[in-house]
């Protein structure tokens, strides 16, 4: 659903409330067709990354040109302790919003990484295979986990950085 996201991003320069404008919701049956052509139509404006969003499961994601970059939040990385292994998804894997796309292991604990967006995994951060501790050092930068070519909207609750901060303080 790169097309829709690009439209949203272009429109958001004018108003932020446009995200949920019903007219932009495309029927599910059209999603594949829509995904085929779009990004070049909007290449002029779509380079602007949307704001970083957070999930209640402590993932973060940003979307650029219809591709979402996903990772775990600094709060989560700190709570998990020393990360010893990241189970990464295979490139090319088709996923639905809400799926577990991998897991983080720290101090004998396995925690699922859930994706708030559906689509196709187009890149994984193979650096984490060599150095899983990157997730502790820079969870919201170098420690990103996967890039997903987005189809459809993010599902479930998402929060802005501020909302997420408040959310974690209440935990």
């Amino acid at each position: 659903m790169a097309a829709r996201l690009s439209i949203v991003r272009a429109a958001r320069q004018f108003t932020s409330s446009v995200i949920h404008r019903p007219s932009l919701i495309v029927p599910a049956s059209c999603q594949r067709w829509q995904g085929a052509t779009p990004s070049r139509l909007f290449s002029g404006t779509s380079a602007v990354a949307s704001d970083k969003k957070y999930t209640p499961d402590h993932e973060w994601f940003t979307t650029t040109n219809g591709t979402a970059t996903l990772g775990i939040s600094s709060y989560a990385a700190k709570a998990l302790g020393d990360v010893v292994y990241i189970e990464l998804p295979e490139v090319g894997l088709e996923i639905s919003a809400g799926d577990a796309i991998g897991a983080v292991e720290s101090v004998k604990s396995a925690s699922d990484i859930l994706t708030p967006v559906g689509g196709k995994v187009v890149e994984v951060n193979t650096k984490l295979e060599e150095k899983p501790s990157t997730v502790n050092q820079d969870p919201e930068g170098e420690g990103w986990i996967a890039k997903i070519e987005v189809q459809g909207e993010a599902e479930g609750e998402t929060m802005s950085a501020e909302e997420y901060k408040k959310f974690t303080e209440e935990q």
Partner: peptide, 8 residues
């Protein structure tokens, strides 16, 4: 020995 699985 202990091990853990964490969900949301």
């Amino acid at each position: 020995g202990s091990a853990y699985k964490l969900t949301r």
